[in-house]
């Protein structure tokens, strides 16, 4: 819940320059970092290796570091698999993650702005009501949530997968903290020009906050794509599975097709690696600025 000072990135150069060690110190430093980096990359290597091998190669007598023939044909195999409807699960994941992200951003940013900037007598009391929900980790309340969702008849539906997760007290809190620091002059100018709160919000505040929105969107998309417990609870029928539930199902299948499940894994993490490579700036900024993700 800390809000680390926003101008974090001003001093690194100075600090780094100060701590210049001797050549041996530097070699040791790079050696340690390099070894750690290699270890961190092993799991990614294993995914790619197994995804592009044949099963006999994977399970063979001797360890093979690289496939003799790269099996590009494996890419389509998950979609032909009959035990798990992988294509459907992939589609569900996209729908859920996108709607989850846009819904949370819309609802929580509006609420955060209202709490931060619209004068109302009891705004603080309302805010305390939001803060209380932060004390309780969402995962612990999956039983009550499931009870509610099942009595609404939302099991096995997009509604059930998406809607209960939209009201994140934490995201609302982060937006409130952010809007508290938004320059008041900009909004006041807008309102003197005759814009309502609503107009000022959409035409002045949001366009000037796109960086923060991007940071929140990145974090929210990743957690939406990766979430497992709730989709597992809601997706009783395979047609409502997300990709994470599908991957989990592969692990308990009777027959194990190694190349197939690793190709599925590769496909499942590819969007995130892309998000990560292209939006890393916002991701790091989001984490460093807001301090903490749920």
């Amino acid at each position: 819940m800390t809000t680390t000072a926003p101008d974090v990135r001003k001093t690194p150069a100075k600090n780094a320059k100060k701590k210049r060690g001797g050549i041996i110190g530097n070699t040791g430093l790079y050696l340690a970092t390099g070894v750690a980096a290699l270890l961190f990359l092993i799991p990614f290597y294993l995914i790619v290796r197994n995804a592009l091998m044949t099963d006999p190669e994977i399970t063979g007598e001797n360890w093979k570091w690289f496939p003799t023939d790269i099996q590009w044909g494996n890419i389509t195999e998950p979609f032909k698999d009959e035990t798990v409807d992988f294509g459907r699960a992939l589609w569900n994941s996209w729908v859920v993650a996108i709607l989850h992200t846009s819904g949370i951003l819309l609802i929580c940013s509006l609420a955060g702005y209202g709490l931060a900037r619209i004068p109302y007598k009891h705004a603080n009391k309302v805010f305390y009501g939001v803060l209380v929900t932060l004390m309780i980790p969402t995962a612990v309340t999956f039983v009550p949530s499931f009870v509610l969702v099942s009595s609404l008849g939302w099991v096995d539906s997009y509604r059930g997968l998406i809607i209960p997760g939209l009201f994140s007290g934490f995201t609302c809190f982060l937006f409130r903290q952010y809007f508290l620091g938004f320059p008041k002059e900009l909004e006041e100018a807008a309102r003197v020009d005759g814009l309502s709160y609503w107009g000022a919000y959409w035409r002045v505040v949001v366009p000037n906050s796109l960086n923060f929105f991007a940071a929140m969107a990145t974090i929210t998309f990743i957690s939406g794509w990766n979430s497992f417990l709730w989709p597992l609870v809601i997706g009783q029928d395979p047609s409502a599975w997300t990709i994470q539930v599908a991957l989990s199902a592969y692990m308990t299948n009777q027959t194990v097709n190694y190349h197939l499940i690793f190709m599925s894994t590769a496909i499942s993490i590819l969007p995130l690696v892309l998000v990560f490579l292209f939006l890393q700036r916002w991701l790091v900024q989001g984490i460093a600025q807001t301090g903490i993700k749920g």
């Binding site: 799991p43 294993l46 995914i47 990743i222 794509w225 990766n226 497992f228 994470q244 991957l247 989990s248 592969y250 692990m251 499940i261 690793f262 894994t265 499942s268 993490i269 995130l272 690696v273 998000v275 990560f276």
Partner: peptide, 11 residues
């Protein structure tokens, strides 16, 4: 950080 616990568990 971008990888899900499920995918990691699988690996």
């Amino acid at each position: 950080t971008a990888v899900s616990y499920v995918a990691a568990a699988l690996v």
